[in-house]
Simulated assay, not measured.
Amino acid sequence: MDWINKIYLNPSQSDQAWSKLNCDKLFKFEAINMWHNVLIKGENIMNKHLKSLAHQVNDYLKNDNKADAKKALTVSIEKLHDLRVATRKWLAVMNPDDEMVASFKKIIQASNKVRDMDVFLWEILPTFPESWQADLVALQAGLQDSRAELNSQFKVLLETELVDELVRAKKRLVKHAHAFESAHGRHKMPFKEIEKRLKTAVKELKLLDLEDKQLHKIRLLIKRLRYQLEHFYPEEHKALALTETIQERLGLFHDQYQAMNLLDKHQSLLTPHMFEQTYAFLQHEKQRTISALRQFLTK
């Protein structure tokens, strides 16, 4: 383990150790998992979130319980969610202009389809009427097969590309701690700007003619504002509560929107009548979700 300590505790002597790390694919995420043992003077918020992300990557890659496939699937769903949250929180404290932002966004982009299927299969599908469930078996089986394939592809991407980016980010964070802290401070959004953007978003959400894609953009903005508040203004409880509520309800709306897309893509697994019923059901639920949010915002 000396080469790991050299990388993180004495970067100026890390060339040989770094070469060893780059050659040793099997132990890269093991090295990442040891970051909690690294003592960095004046540990900042960026280091905290990078370590959290590293742990989530490690846990996700290690989840391979072949003896209990059902348990492994349950853990996989939970770990994927945790991994995506940790990634978003890390991105929220990075300088948006940093060259590594695009690499970490890959974690979100590459796992979107897996997450959409998880939500549909285990959150949306059970909400359909009980009398429909027998007609949805083929759809459920088809989506589970697709989910397994997409999950395998995502793990390969993590192991072959993104783990390298995590290790590289850690090396930069240790070696250039002061520069990272400065960049971190530069993209801290003033609270008045957060209030302004939040007020504008609420105003837009009350409009009746918004398209689904516009609502998606507002959801991403609200998510960013929430993470800014959590990182920099945790004492602003009222603003935090508002962003949390909006994000939760727009998240449900987005899940229902994506579920309709999945139905449309896999309608061959349903009878024409069942497809029409399930699609109309989701359209109705989606409208109820946004109506409830608008009612909340007008109180």
Rank of each mutant, 00 (worst) to 15 (best):
Q109P: 00
K170A: 15
N33F: 02
D145R: 14
M46S: 05
K6Q: 12
S291P: 00
T298W: 03
E230W: 05
L173E: 05
R172T: 09
M46N: 00
K105Y: 10
F275A: 02
H81E: 12
M34D: 03
K203Y: 10
N261K: 15
Q287I: 05
S111H: 01
Y279G: 02
R219D: 14
K105G: 07
S268P: 01
K206M: 06
H36W: 11
I246W: 06
T127E: 08
W122D: 14
F281D: 12
L215S: 06
F154G: 01
Y257R: 07
L282C: 01
L53T: 03
H178T: 15
R288H: 09
K79G: 02
R186N: 11
K41T: 13
V114R: 00
V38D: 05
K299F: 13
D135I: 00
N22M: 10
K192P: 01
Q277L: 12
L143P: 03
K105V: 11
V57F: 13
L166P: 01
L39F: 09
A102W: 06
K113E: 12
A241Q: 12
R168T: 12
H176A: 13
F281E: 07
A54T: 07
L26D: 11
E248K: 11
Y60V: 02
D15H: 11
F232Y: 15
L270N: 04
S131T: 13
D59R: 05
I218M: 02
D68C: 04
I218W: 00
T271F: 01
E236H: 09
H284D: 09
I107T: 02
L215A: 06
K6V: 04
Y257F: 15
N261Q: 15
K79E: 15
M189V: 14
E244C: 07
S111Y: 00
L83G: 00
N5H: 13
N261A: 15
R219I: 00
K48Y: 08
R226L: 08
S103W: 09
K71N: 05
Q56D: 06
R219Q: 13
H187D: 10
L221M: 10
C23S: 13
K170L: 15
S12G: 00
E181Q: 12
A54I: 01
L61M: 09
M100L: 14
W18F: 12
Q256T: 03
A179D: 11
F29D: 05
V75D: 12
N95P: 08
T245V: 07
I32E: 01
M260E: 08
E195N: 06
A280V: 06
L263F: 09
Y8S: 03
V101N: 02
K155C: 04
Q277S: 08
Q153K: 10
A67I: 07
S152V: 10
R172Q: 13
L125I: 04
N47R: 09
D164L: 11
R115Y: 14
A280S: 14
A177D: 13
N47T: 07
K66E: 13
K196V: 03
Q140G: 08
S14W: 04
A86G: 01
